[in-house]
Design a protein around this nucleic acid. Structure first.
Ligand code: FES
Ligand code: FES
Lengths: 145, 145
DNA sequence: TTATATAGAACAAATTCAGTCCTATTGCTG
DNA sequence: CAGCAATAGGACTGAATTTGTTCTATATAA
């Protein structure tokens, strides 16, 4: 089906929502509010936020008035960062992700090199979009060479 | 995990193998031979070949001395063709594939437009590689602007 | 000290995928 | 014409992955 997981999908929405809501800098947002704003069930939001926090994209603050905040500027966070944390290494085939030598056909494989090229393009596309660009509606996103 | 299915993965390998083996034009290759050459179990190869045939990428020939042959020139078959047939429409998120109006958040969704851009890049990468380029080893595939 | 919010792991249900098998149909060949 | 070889198509099973929930522990503000 060539989809990323729903967790990663939600993760991107959540991060975008956070970036957009962060009017006063260092303001923390709690899981409950995010759940409402993003229309995603609370337990799921919690799970995703924890993972993103562990991955270093968010910083957390416990206790009353606690919550989460972006760990870096929105312009320093890419879509690839988010997906990698929630879904593991990005790659269209197992062989492009597996360590060298893991596949026994490596020497004679007719598709290894082409896949690496395609994979790099996909990675570039994901790395090329930052959270900041994503929420900046004045930016014409649909321009292309 | 953001992988395509193994079926699609195998499908690309099989098509590449077919294109490479087709020394005498219109020679048909049967499933058994392909299974051996590509190191993929016979029943699975059969399943994939049937699907590719239904998808219009191969033509089949039944009976003794039967088999499969490419329906078009290798330069007219792209990786996207193969994957679309075996895995359905390519898209990283459900919303980029779903018909307009299927998602209730469409109007206010912060990530819809960015995803469409990324998706188009992925599609371009897959459409930009033909079977012919894939098996032409003299072609330096790793060149990039 | 108490209420609030996250940390982290464990868990059950649902979905998807991989791989196999079986029967029908087509066409060659003796 | 009979028999064999190969694909067509679908059904089926077991495994793996994913989803979404729940529970307990820990930190912190008031
Ligand atoms: S299938 Fe593993 S290297 Fe090509
Ligand atoms: S989540 Fe459906 S349009 Fe954005």
């Amino acid at each position: 089906m060539i989809r990323m997981s729903k967790l990663a999908d939600y993760g991107v929405v959540i991060m975008a929502t956070m970036a957009r809501e962060r009017q006063p800098l260092d303001a923390t947002v709690n899981a409950r509010d995010l759940s409402e704003k993003a229309h995603i069930p609370l337990p799921t939001v919690g799970k995703i936020l924890k993972a993103l926090c562990r991955g270093g994209l968010l910083v957390s603050h416990r206790g009353p008035r606690g919550g989460y905040a972006l760990a870096r500027l929105a312009s320093e966070i890419t879509v690839l960062d988010i997906i990698s944390i929630l879904d593991g290494p990005v790659g269209l085939t197992d062989c492009t992700v597996a360590p060298l030598g893991a596949c026994e056909m490596e020497a004679t494989c007719p598709v290894r090199s082409p896949w690496h090229m395609i994979n790099r393009r996909v990675l570039d596309a994901l790395r090329g979009l930052t959270l900041h660009e994503m929420i900046d509606s004045t930016n014409i996103l649909d321009k292309r060479p």
